[in-house]
Design a binder for these strands. Sequence first.
RNA 1: GCCGGCGUAGCUCAGUGGUAGAGCAGCUGAUUCGUAAUCAGCAGGUCGGUGGUUCAAUCCCACUCGCCGGCUCCA
Length: 649
Amino acid sequence: MSEKCTASIALVYPDGHHTTAPKGISAGEALALPTGKLPQGVIAALVNGAAVDLAAPLESDAEIRPVTFDMPEGKEVYRHSSAHIMAQAVKDLFPTAQLTIGPPIEEGFYYDFAYERPFTPEDLAKIESRIQEILNADRPFRRREMSRGEAIHFFKDRGEHYKCELIQGFSDETVSVYDQGGLVDLCRGPHVPSTGCIHAIKLLTSAGAYWRGDERNPMLQRIYGTSFPTQKELDAYLQKLEEIKKRDHRKLGKELELISVNDEIGPGLILWLPKGATVRLQIENFWREQHQKHGYELVYSPHVARLDLWKTSGHTEYYRENMFAPMQVEATDYQLKPMNCPFHIMIYKSQLRSYRDLPQRYAELGTVYRYERSGVLHGLMRVRGFTQDDAHLFCRPEQIESEVADVLDFVFFVLKTFGFHEYQVYVSTRPEKAVGSETAWAQATGGLEAALKSRGIAYSIDPGEGVFYGPKIDIKIKDVLGRSWQCSTVQVDFNNPERFGLEFTGEDGHAHRPIMIHRALMGSIERFFGILIEHYAGAFPTWLAPVQAVVIAITDKQADYAQQVAQRFNEAGYRVEADIRSEKMGLKIREAEKAKVPYMLVAGDREVQENAVSVRRRGGGNAGTMTIEAFLEHLKHDVTERTGVPLAQ
RNA sequence: GCCGGCGUAGCUCAGUGGUAGAGCAGCUGAUUCGUAAUCAGCAGGUCGGUGGUUCAAUCCCACUCGCCGGCUCCA
């Protein structure tokens, strides 16, 4: 303890190490204390859990830990500083561009500018080289605080009207700005110590974006970029982007002859080619089989219904912007269905229900049509006509939790079967535009959370993202490239039972109102198929592959044998083709590889002799010679276990 | 819907103010071959559509349809 004990603070490090230091010591100095220097790669500090600049003075006892790029907080700081540097480069080159916001995002950052014209690729190249100069100059980021009024003046003087608008929306009396020697930007921070800490930046694209994400506001010019501590990491990231492009379901869907979209049919409407349809059929068969096992009843419903039905359900009021225009038939308006629920409700209503009948679980692969604005359509992921793997469960209120829990088990079983093992789960609460009382919403949301807890599933809350009729659980899956996709959804609905006057007779002999649960496991077959194509890179596991094996005749002499072999497999229920063209086997193998057929069965004179085939696995693995019956067993195993294949390289 | 980019043969892409080319695929023939491309020949396009400028438009302009990247929205 020094004589001036008032000037000391206690520090605790992540490894439990304790020390004291003079009050006012910077976070960076504090982190350097144990070893005498700041560890490599430290760009900021976490002080009592909050990220701060290395230059930030410590005024009281603190738990302190270093922040590096490989921590989520570190990436945020790093990319945020990168965005500021880009903003400086843009201001240098285009002085009339106004700053708006520039946050870090999952894999990089963006900055939105108000500028008179869009930035061209040539502009981006210029901005990039200007950025390089700023990095080389290694200017420190300096934090400064000013009062709100002062800040408004400051930015007004500089013509930064968007910044003024932002500050006017703040409730704090003081705001912070960062000066990096050439640009002063409104910012909460923290930042890396100096511009030289950023090593590899790449600008990726420019695009229009509305101010504050509202289409009624002016359109700004957004530039996306990313940055990494080393060129090597940046290169690896760019390579990953290439890989994503290669796996794009629109590209593979065309190349592998799975699906097609056609101008003459209309945007967002999908043609399933025979091979795509074959995969879909396997998915649907699996789906039906599992639903029967899980206590669901399969139903079918029409594609149109009287508009009045949709008035009753509330769709015309709450969902109209997503529906196709009604059509008139014999002086009555009919509506193409955007959802299946009203039909399943009517199935429930088709007879009197007792409490003993509940839950009723109706499932349907129901094709719905939704009007999506032309700019949002995207391959199979966002379309105007799609098939939901829909189900509606009608139950007593006290059954919600167990029904939802069962659905969750079912969801995870199905997703695992398709090779998805990482999930993010969200509970979405009451949106602005909603029906039903606050209490009903709270109760239903509680039911969803209780079900998640009963299964030990971690989740986060997505405020205001529920559907108009009730709260929901959304499950996002992560594919092999680490991208998230929303598929499964479980939604509680206490509104439609009300609207349609659904009832069941309780033990007390009185009428009671059931609760309805909407759920989809895969979401839409189209989207799920798109995700599967990308997840497997088009190399489907054997049970899903459109063609499971090709028998390759080496010369014309083995043609009959090859056909007999293929037929033997076809009769056993497998999708096997014979390639008996007068081509060299090298070509046949190449084409089968390109078509991502799981197995190539080579048949030459030797194999004919032994009633065998020489098995080659997709990707080049030679599995040796097997008899026909042995390979049949192998195929059977792949298909019943739904495994067999190695994901594509 | 909004901002920007793009649209040439089945696919991937060259190209020019004077009505178009390549590779692959396709067809025909030859070849009969052991684990990712055998050879030769042939055929294939109203250059997305409509209108305009021009002696002349695939190229320039306008509109329109579609696609791509974003915004917004969602399964």
